[in-house]
């Protein structure tokens, strides 16, 4: 069997100290295969955001391991974690998190600037990413002057500018109306076709159904994982990449 791109073992996350301690995650086990699209679904406070933060190596677990590409992240130094995030991960946030006073281009080049790439290379890669999201003509605009949908597409451009292996999206359509949301969804699944692993945190069932796999979190535990119900479904994403949205929806329904 192929090595999972992210593997989580007995993940526990406790916030606060003894008397006020709150266990957000209780022994989570998860394997995510390369090229998969995974929806992490859960209500507010269920622990889904915490799980994403740990998967994305933004936070360290209290117990357990997060293994990225066979490397145990808990054994890495902060500096190596930073590099790993910068090289392999892309992030799309619900609130966009753009620097509003900077231009679109400057926002997109940020990960490359952090990586220490040269200006010329930064520009080229950023323009390529902007072309992918169809906003190359807005490169010189101030980020603030864009519409919500455009902002989210800029965020996607920023997330893919470093050619990541895994793309984390936290409620990527949460702030968008249905039409612009669809555009963003199309973009995200288009990336999956190119081999990017998608991890989408959402409480939007429709979006979740479009993913190859749904992981439900409740009270810090995985209550349902579509992959564990039918082992074959984990193999599907690679084949299903060319399939239509409806086909995927049907698969999702069947598993529900």
């Amino acid at each position: 069997m192929e090595q999972p791109v992210i593997e989580v073992k007995n993940l526990v996350k406790v916030y606060g100290k003894r008397s006020t301690a709150f266990t957000a995650l209780k022994k989570i086990n998860l394997e995510i295969q390369k090229g998969e699209s995974v929806a992490v679904i859960g209500k507010s406070g269920s622990g889904k955001s915490t799980l994403m933060h740990l998967l994305a190596l933004l936070d360290r677990p209290t117990e357990g391991n997060v293994i990225v590409d066979g490397i145990d992240s808990t054994k890495l130094k902060t500096k190596q974690l930073n590099t790993l995030r910068n090289d392999d991960f892309g992030f799309v946030f619900q609130q966009f998190f753009m620097n509003p006073q900077d231009t679109v281009l400057e926002n997109v080049t940020l990960p490359l600037k952090i990586a220490g790439k040269r200006r010329k290379e930064r520009r080229e890669l950023a323009m390529k990413a902007l072309r992918t999201v169809g906003l190359a003509d807005r490169a010189k605009f101030k980020a603030n002057d864009l519409s919500g949908g455009q902002k989210q597409r800029v965020c996607i451009a920023r997330a893919i500018v470093n050619n990541p292996k895994i793309l984390f999206a936290d409620e990527p359509t949460g702030n968008l109306d249905s039409t612009t949301g669809e555009k963003v969804i199309k973009l995200l699944f288009g990336l999956q076709k190119k081999g990017v692993t998608l991890i989408i945190v959402t409480h939007d069932e429709d979006l979740a159904k479009m993913c190859d796999r749904q992981v439900r979190i409740s009270d810090g535990k995985v209550t349902e994982d579509s992959a564990s119900q039918s082992k074959t479904s984990t193999k599907k994403p690679k084949k299903s990449t060319t399939k239509t949205k409806t086909a995927k929806n049907q698969t999702a329904k069947g598993e529900n």
């Binding site: 994305a56 090289d87 940020l110 952090i114 990586a115």
Partner: peptide, 16 residues
Amino acid sequence: TREIGLDKALGMSSGR
């Protein structure tokens, strides 16, 4: 604050 958070999430070290 948010900008700093983003920078750090994208891999900027505390030192930087």
